[in-house]
Design a protein around this nucleic acid. Structure first.
Length: 202
DNA sequence: TGATAGATCGGCT
DNA sequence: GCCGATCTATCAG
């Protein structure tokens, strides 16, 4: 199981995002091997009012403006960590938020960390995914493309016809951009919005 | 310097 | 369905 290389990430976020579906998020640590198949993610770009990078480089968003293939982790609503994959060129503030995944291995560790046993409650949501994988601010800036215990591997991409798009969850601006990508029909997609999300809300 | 909104989640009504 | 927890960044004064 080899990490996806730098070139995978050095493309625009809305191009990388659908290509992330079906890939495996892998963590090899003292807790053993953890892996999950990505089923939902969202693209964010520098000229995008919904993006953390929209107002320019800050201490918090510095990683987003760095080289592609690194991990951007931020603390949300005073309670949860959320993880992004940095995309595009070095110096450009774009990334893809990993929102949900289907647990594949290391399920007992995920259950212990989450305090839940149901498979759909382990990695289905950005805060849940980071908790299951033990990702925190300590992992901010980590290079996914080069020899760490956390990386993405090839996996098995879904049939292109099985990929659906929608507006991004919890975002009130730039609603015209259908930059949420998910595996249609997967029961591991986060459930915050209506089931038939292939439309753009008015 | 204070108020407020936010890429969330889980518990309660 | 609604609300609180409680950190970060931005904006108003």
């Amino acid at each position: 199981m080899r990490p996806l290389g730098r070139s995978f990430y050095s493309r625009p976020a809305p191009v990388v995002a659908p290509d992330l579906l079906g890939r495996l998020l892998v963590r090899k640590g003292t807790a053993g091997l953890l892996s999950a198949r990505i089923v939902e993610c969202e693209a964010y770009q520098e000229d995008d009012p919904a993006s953390h990078s929209f107002r320019g480089l800050t201490n918090r968003t510095a990683v987003m403006f760095g080289p592609p293939g690194h991990l951007y982790v931020y603390f949300s609503y005073g309670a949860h960590w959320c993880m992004n994959v940095v995309t595009g060129d070095d110096g450009e503030g774009s990334a893809v938020l990993l929102r949900a995944a289907e647990p594949m291995s290391g399920i007992e560790v995920m259950q212990a960390r989450r305090g839940r046993t149901e498979a759909q409650l382990l990695c289905s949501g950005p805060g849940r995914l980071t908790q299951a994988f033990g990702v925190t601010g300590a992992d901010n800036g980590l290079d996914l493309a080069w020899g760490h215990d956390l990386f993405l591997s090839e996996g098995t991409p879904p049939d292109p016809a099985g990929v659906a798009t929608s507006t991004r969850i919890g975002i009130s601006v730039a609603r015209e951009q259908p930059w949420r990508f998910f595996v249609a029909g997967s029961s591991f997609v986060s459930r915050r919005a209506a089931p038939s999300l292939a439309r753009v809300d008015p």
